[in-house]
Nucleic acid binder design. Structure first.
Lengths: 331, 331
DNA sequence: GGCGGTCATACAAACGATTGCACGCGACGG
DNA sequence: CCGTCGCGTGCAATCGTTTGTATGACCGCC
């Protein structure tokens, strides 16, 4: 019934010494052969390679990491793996890192500082060489590695430290979203924002309010669909409800559309909705969602370039994607 | 302009030796103190703890891993991080693993065997102690660790090897989905399946065909929304189009709904659609999606239990979630 | 006061790789 | 015939921990 539990004593893996014995050489020679050194040649090299093939030997990355003080691995920290926005950023990172011979691991913090600390330790203790933060926060104790160029922020600026940061100009992008609504003729443009205290939230609010006006309606959400739905319901219950709403991400926009429909409103005829991010689902909502696209694969590539080559990343370009959830207001 | 690139030589981290010097004891004593051994007490212990606090020291996991042959980390391999179905499974794993003192890392294979191999190496060389496979495939060279109980499959059975597997009865679940449609009065029930050659695909086809009949229409997709859309368009172009369609996952169902709507059909009045998985977006589609829910957090917990305690997992329970995308056929 | 017993601490050998340096061997030239 | 050079290989130290065993201090007891 019960399988062989993950045994405390690990399987006796084949070591370099085993290869050396099989090939009749010393461990150093094996190591050099595997590293591709020109110092080991001909017959010796062949015997070693044969032994490796035969045993399926792979070098122990833990021992290698200890000796070299380098793992050739990157860790991506994100708030939650459940948000599809991060997925494509990760894919971009994987692509660029892979091309440079680096592996990529992902850690999900769920906003929990304890989990953050555990994951940050992977960098502090050399399990990984670099950290990509999509969390908007620098975990404790990472100031030194950050100054050493081992940490880069993506999508969201991190306050209190000068980190290379890969992002778009969020304020300008938010303003572009609102300008689109204004160009359609909207005047009462509400905003469903991210959580308070979040840098992205503040930047997008800033971009929205400068275009939408000071007295426009603002509700805070938490980037989930459920929060977008609740926020929209809140907005619709007010005395003068908006003709358009700008949501700080696509998931909240999807929630907002649902709330509007449940209240008997048609989108976009009665209410225009614009999102942010252009996650894959945005093109498949009903109606398809107008949104601001962030260049996620480019984010990933720029992040890796920053870590590996020390390039300091420029602001990347966003794009307004006009679909069918926005239209001129009635009347 | 350019930040300090991720320096080849790593920062000189504080080692246990530094703590020992600060506390005026030997390295062994520090090690024992940190491990909570009762052999080091009183004043000595306090001096050590003070030094640790002062320096922010954390033990080097690479060295520790080498010495102990154990990392207390699990790696989750998934085909793509972009599919939200996996997100909640990962959360369940993180929860259960965290409670047992294990960390969780995630690797995305993108269906690429090379990437699979690189990630599998993490297990082979002791970077992680256990592997959770959501990929439906056992990477090369993992037979030994698999037999040692270091590998568990989740959601999808892996062929060719007897691995502890956490899943639902996919055939029965598919059949339950189709039975729901039949109960509503449908008789022409098509299926949009996953990719050919996939075990899940076969199981769900089996469940569908036994209930829907031999001559019902079948189209293959690849679990993406775009493929669901294309498959539905294909189905609608046929001479006798179905009154209901069972999709092998929610994303294809979302694509199918879009295709139906674009063809001028109303869901569910003209076409019923049922999905599979109950991803978070399923409740927010229009109309909200009827689907089969897989117990994802339970998947995670059972996977960890299998790895850590050697429990061999039972089949878990699925649930039919009836929302608004299914209804009796017209006429 | 000497001896055995306890207790806290230190020494040193692993874990599995990499690499500077030294060494052995064959060939070649003087 | 011997010294030297070059080339391939091996020795041993190292990376930062953990842990079995040795050591030394101190105590009480006879």
């Amino acid at each position: 019934m019960s399988s062989p539990r993950m045994t405390e004593p690990p399987a006796g893996r084949t070591r370099m010494e085993d290869i050396a014995r099989l090939a009749g050489v010393s461990v150093s020679t094996v190591s050099r052969a595997l590293a591709g050194s020109p110092r080991v040649t001909g017959d010796t090299r062949e015997r070693i390679e044969a032994a490796v093939r035969e045993t399926g030997y792979v070098v122990n990355q833990v021992a290698q990491g200890l000796r070299l003080q380098r793992s050739r691995q990157l860790l991506v920290l994100l708030p939650t793996i459940a948000n599809p926005f991060f997925a494509e950023v990760v894919q971009g990172i994987e692509e660029a890192a892979g091309a440079a011979g680096y592996g990529v691991l992902v850690g999900s913090t769920e906003g929990d500082p304890a989990r953050e600390a555990v994951l940050a330790r992977q960098l502090l203790t050399g399990v990984v060489d670099g950290l990509v933060l999509l969390t908007g926060r620098l975990p404790d104790g990472l100031d030194a590695p950050a100054r050493a160029g081992q940490v880069v922020a993506v999508s969201e600026t991190i306050e209190g430290i000068d980190l290379p940061t890969v992002a778009i100009d969020n304020q300008a992008a938010a303003r572009a979203a609102v300008d689109h609504l204004i160009a359609l003729g909207h005047r009462r443009i509400a905003h469903i924002a991210g959580p308070r205290g979040n840098v992205l939230t503040a930047q997008r609010i800033a971009g929205w309010s400068v275009a939408a006006g000071r007295d426009a309606a603002l509700v805070f959400g938490d980037f989930t669909m459920a929060s977008g739905e609740a926020a929209m319901a809140d907005l619709l219950a007010r005395s003068s409800s908006p003709t358009a709403v700008f949501c700080a991400n696509d998931e909240m926009a999807i929630g907002a559309i649902k709330a509007a429909r449940d209240a008997g409103l048609r989108v976009p005829e009665d209410l225009s909705v614009i999102g942010f991010d252009d996650i894959s689902f945005a093109a498949f909502t009903y109606p398809p969602l107008t949104t601001i696209r962030q260049p996620r694969r480019a984010f990933g590539a720029a992040a890796v370039a920053a870590l590996l080559d020390g390039h300091s990343p420029p602001n990347l370009a966003y794009t307004l994607i006009i679909r069918a959830s926005t239209a001129p207001p009635k009347g």
